[in-house]
C-alpha cells in the first residue's frame, strides 16, 4: 500500500509539472523519459515479473503504431479509436507470439530469439504490403486538434502519455500485489515447482505477454501521434526492442519503479554524455557505453538494487534462476 501511495503521489506531482515547466526542451525530455519508462514497464511485465526475455518488443510497438497510422491515413478513422484498436491489435500479435511459443515451452534465449524473428518478419511484411506505405512509410497529416490527438503544446502530449503510463504502472503495482502476480513470479523462479502448486504456467505467461503487448502497442500509438511519421525500421526495427529491455534491466528487473529509474538514468546519461563530449562523431556514445558497462560492473542488480542496498531494504525480486539454455 505504501508503494501505491508513493505511485499515486508521484504521478500526481508529475501531472502538475507542466504548470511550472515552461521550457519546451525540458518538457520534451520529460516526455521522452516517460515514453521510455512506458516501453520499459511494458517489457518489465513479461521480462522482469515473468522472466521471459523478449528481444522483439518492436513487434508490439510497431503494430500499435501502424494501426493508429493506417486507420487514420488509409481509412480516415479517428486516432482515439485508433489508440484502442492499436492496443488491441498489439495484444493480438502478443497472443499469437505467446501461443506459438509458450505452448511449445520455449524459454530463455530461444524465446528471446524467436521474438526477435517475429519482429523481423513484421518489419519485412510492413516493407512489402501497400497499406503501410511499404518503404515510403506513412505520413500522418499535420492537423493539430484534440479530436485528432495532435497538440500544439507539449503539455497535452505529456498528459496523454502520463495517463497511459500511469495505467501501466498501476497494472504493474497490481501484479506485484495480486494472486496473478504471485503466480507469475512463481513461474519465473521455478516453473516446475509452480506447476506442482497448481499454477498453469501457460495461462499465466499468456496473460503476461498480453499485458506487455498492450502497453508496448500503446507506446507505439503515442510515438506515431507525436512524430507523425512511420517507416518499417522505425516501427519494427531493433532499436525499440533494445530500448525496451535496456530500461528495466538498468533500472531493476521485476520492480515497480525500476523502469522509471532506468529511463531517467539512461536519458540523463545520454544527455550528459552528449553535452560533455561535444561534437566528435561517436565520442559521446563511447562514453555512454563505458558508463553503462561501469554501472553493470558496480551495480549488478540494476539501479533499484543499488538503491535498495543503500537503504538496506530487501530487493523485491529474488535472484533469477540461472538459465540452463
Amino acid at each position: 500500500m505504501r508503494q501505491l501511495a508513493l505511485l499515486v503521489a508521484l504521478f500526481a506531482a508529475l501531472a502538475v509539472a507542466p504548470i511550472f515547466i515552461h521550457s519546451a526542451v525540458w518538457m520534451n525530455l520529460i516526455i521522452m523519459v516517460l515514453y521510455a519508462a512506458l516501453l520499459g514497464q511494458a517489457w518489465n511485465i513479461l521480462g522482469g515479473y515473468g522472466g521471459q526475455f523478449s528481444f522483439g518488443h518492436a513487434a508490439f510497438f510497431g503494430t500499435g503504431a501502424y494501426t493508429i497510422a493506417v486507420l487514420q491515413v488509409q481509412l480516415g478513422i479517428n486516432p482515439w479509436v485508433g489508440l484502442v484498436a492499436g492496443g488491441m491489435l498489439a495484444m493480438l500479435v502478443a497472443a499469437f507470439i505467446g501461443f506459438s511459443t509458450f505452448r511449445y515451452g520455449l524459454k530463455g534465449s530461444y524465446f528471446a530469439l524467436i521474438t526477435l524473428a517475429f519482429a523481423e518478419v513484421l518489419r519485412i511484411l510492413s516493407n512489402s504490403v501497400p497499406f503501410t506505405g511499404a518503404g515510403v512509410g506513412l505520413l500522418i497529416e499535420l492537423n493539430p486538434s484534440a479530436a485528432n490527438m495532435q497538440f500544439v503544446d507539449k503539455a497535452s502530449y505529456f498528459w496523454l502519455l502520463l495517463a497511459i503510463t500511469f495505467i501501466a504502472f498501476l497494472t504493474v503495482w497490481w501484479i506485484g500485489n495480486s494472486r496473478f502476480g504471485a503466480q507469475l513470479m512463481a513461474v519465473r523462479d521455478n516453473e516446475d515447482a509452480a506447476r506442482a502448486l497448481g499454477v498453469d504456467p501457460f495461462k499465466v505467461k499468456m496473460s503476461a505477454i498480453l499485458l506487455s503487448g498492450l502497453f508496448s502497442g500503446l507506446a507505439g500509438c503515442f510515438y506515431a501521434q507525436y512524430f507523425l511519421y512511420l517507416d518499417p525500421s522505425i516501427a519494427y526495427g531493433s532499436s525499440v526492442s533494445v530500448e525496451s529491455l535496456l530500461v528495466p534491466i538498468v533500472g531493476g528487473l521485476g520492480t515497480l519503479f525500476g523502469p522509471l529509474f532506468g529511463a531517467i538514468a539512461l536519458h540523463t546519461l545520454s544527455e550528459v554524455t552528449r553535452s560533455v563530449i561535444g561534437d566528435l562523431p561517436g565520442a559521446s556514445l563511447v562514453l555512454y557505453g563505458i558508463l553503462l558497462v561501469l554501472v553493470i560492473l558496480f551495480s549488478p542488480r540494476g539501479l533499484s538494487g543499488l538503491i535498495n542496498s543503500l537503504t538496506g531494504r530487501v530487493p523485491a525480486s529474488k535472484k533469477k534462476e540461472e538459465n540452463n539454455g
Binding site: F20, H22, V25, L29, E271, V272, R274, S275, D279
Partner: peptide
C-alpha cells in the same frame, strides 16, 4: 530565455 528551469545543464554544443 524565460525558462523557469535552468537549461544550462542540457549543454550548448557551440
Amino acid at each position: 530565455m524565460t525558462d523557469t528551469m535552468k537549461s544550462g545543464g542540457l549543454g550548448r554544443r557551440q
